[in-house]
């Protein structure tokens, strides 16, 4: 069974302005993707594209004024968005884990890391303090943390960035989840540490068959650690498919531009890259949201673009793409 299937997810920020008029920012506009067990999906896009919001929407972690206004998120066939809060609570942290950005501010600063690991385990599983402690030590060891038994007593502020990120991943894995969502798991870490953390994540997925979604803006991470990728722009997935195929044949003009802007493909002095701020979510244009920046835009782009299947699971949402 598909581990996670997100269908036509819409999330809006609904607020009132100073004139008491309702203002709606359409932050997610029909996000759909699927993740199979044992696979790593890379969700990429630039600032404001809705990557993190996709994760928090699925996990039911939105706070007002953000609200899911449509769509489904099926975890092993059960819709997370239609489930009673208590059932979602039971799944979160146990079967579905989230590794958030900025490890240093995500750990409880007043609790030793060992106690944090034990706490999350005992909140979801019937385990003795002793069994939970043993599991926590094992988990730290498996993440390559030297001298794990002694590290259990460490405070979060004593950890380096790379260590804190490993502890955060250990927290996420304590209850052997079936789905791991990692939001920018290596942003801000040094490259040698980044490589170690990503190696760990990939080995884990390969070894245990869980599914993982990595949210990142770094196409290098996607190119080397993900099986599938989904490219987001203005709250929608504009292109998705197997990583090699999308890199070899980027079909949506936005994807082509994004991949062309990587230092590996960029030619200084060549044709200029199209860059710019993301569109205003309060006034998204009808049809394709990329058409203001798109060099290939035409009159038909004012109508919603179709999802064009390009074979082997490669899909692009664009009027200009021929199947």
């Amino acid at each position: 069974m598909t581990l996670l299937r997100v269908e036509d997810l819409h999330t809006h920020f609904i607020s009132r302005d100073l004139d008491n008029q309702i203002r709606v920012a359409r932050a997610l506009n029909g996000v759909s993707f699927a993740l199979e067990p044992g696979r790593i999906l890379g969700l990429v896009g630039e600032t404001g594209a809705g990557k993190s919001l996709t994760a928090t929407s699925i996990m039911g972690l939105l706070r007002p004024p953000a609200r899911v206004v449509g769509g489904r998120a099926l975890f092993e066939g059960r819709d997370l968005l239609a489930m009673p809060e208590a059932e979602v609570n039971a799944l979160r942290g146990r079967d579905i884990s989230l590794v958030v950005q900025s490890p240093k501010s995500s750990l409880d600063p007043l609790t030793r890391i060992g106690d944090q690991l034990i706490r999350i385990h005992r909140a979801h599983r019937k385990a003795s303090e002793k069994a939970a402690r043993e599991r926590a030590v094992e988990m730290l060891a498996s993440l390559g943390i030297p001298d794990p038994a002694r590290r259990m007593a460490a405070w979060p502020h004593e950890l380096s960035g790379g260590m804190a990120q490993r502890v955060l991943i250990a927290l996420a894995l304590m209850n052997a989840p079936r789905l791991l969502i990692a939001d920018e798991p290596t942003t801000g870490l040094d490259v040698t540490v980044q490589a170690q953390i990503l190696d760990l994540l990939r080995d884990l997925v390969r070894r245990t068959g869980i599914g993982a979604m990595i949210i990142t803006h770094d196409l290098g991470v996607v190119a080397h650690y993900c099986d599938e990728m989904a490219v987001m722009y203005a709250g929608a997935i504009v292109e998705s498919g197997p990583v090699r195929q999308v890199f070899a044949n980027p079909s949506h003009p936005y994807t082509a531009n994004l991949i062309g802007a990587t230092p590996e493909r960029l030619r200084l002095g060549g044709p200029r890259t199209v860059g710019g701020p993301p569109p205003n979510l309060f006034r998204l244009p009808e049809g394709c949201a990329y058409r203001d920046r798109c060099p290939q835009a035409g009159a038909d782009c004012a109508t919603p673009p179709p999802d064009v299947a390009l074979g082997a699971g490669h899909v692009a949402r664009c009027h200009r793409v021929a199947a």
Binding site: T192, D199, D218, L219, V221, V222, A223, I259
Partner: peptide, 15 residues
């Protein structure tokens, strides 16, 4: 440890 944004690039990893 550098990850070029190209899935075809071969990595030689020294940890």
């Amino acid at each position: 440890a550098h990850l070029p944004a190209d899935p075809e690039a071969v990595l030689r990893r020294h940890v």
